[in-house]
Computed example of a mutant assay.
Amino acid sequence: MRFDDDLKETIRGRLATFDICCRTEGHGLKRAAVAITVVARDENDAYGKPGDAAFLLTRRASKLRAHAGQLALPGGRIDAGETPQQAALRELEEEVGLSLDASNVLGTLDDYPTRSGYLIAPVVVWSPRAAAVSPNPDEVEHLYRIPLSELRRPESPEIFSIPESDRPVIRLPTPMVNGHINAPTAALLYQFREVALEGRATRVEHFDQPVWAWR
């Protein structure tokens, strides 16, 4: 998928017409936001083609107290007085050094409740081609630029059952991370694919996470 204005406006338009399902009251969950950030592919990356669009994915630093070493989208807790969009942009700058503003926000997707006690608001952000990134080593062990085409792999998503839950678990295979992207990140990216890239109104709240991600 080409990183160009046509893609940008396609994503913006599809998010604008998507009927968001948000849950902000009465669930006892801590509010959080993540940035699904569309960027140009790194020209030095072996995956994808020059001019491809990609998204940013981090591997969390191993010394973090929560979810150390896991693959995640840039994001974190929503501070008092912040909107999800403001929190996602702040966390994007704090984690990967990418400084953007509200004009770069294309839209949002459904809030997703996690087993670890968070209600995540996914915010879709467009990064200018020349924007620089500088990952914070205290928070990010590795920063990936995953081509959007990886979300369209024929075998993706993988949906399966586990004995600990009556809900199906979702994960996205990609060799770029030597394995899989697991939920909750997989659920958010799958909805991004369905809504923003394919134009299909798809819900993902019913998808569960692997047991090791419940903590």
Rank of each mutant, 00 (worst) to 15 (best):
P168G: 07
H206T: 08
T202S: 11
A186M: 09
T185P: 01
V169Y: 03
E198T: 02
I170R: 03
P173L: 07
P168R: 06
D166V: 10
E194M: 15
R167C: 12
Q209C: 12
A201H: 14
A186G: 04
H180R: 13
F207Y: 15
L172H: 05
G199C: 07
E205C: 12
M176K: 12
I170Q: 04
F207S: 03
A187P: 09
G199K: 07
F192M: 02
H206K: 13
G179H: 11
R200A: 12
H206V: 01
E164C: 08
H180M: 14
P175V: 02
T185H: 03
N178K: 13
P175A: 05
A186T: 08
A196T: 07
R203D: 13
R203A: 14
N182V: 13
R193P: 04
G179S: 04
N178G: 15
L172T: 07
R203M: 08
T185Q: 08
G179M: 09
T185R: 01
E198I: 00
V204W: 01
N178S: 13
P210E: 14
T185I: 03
M176P: 00
V204C: 11
E164V: 06
Q209N: 01
R193E: 11
P210L: 15
L172A: 06
I170N: 02
P175L: 05
N182R: 12
G179P: 05
T174V: 11
E194H: 00
M176W: 02
A201R: 14
Q191S: 09
H180W: 14
H206F: 14
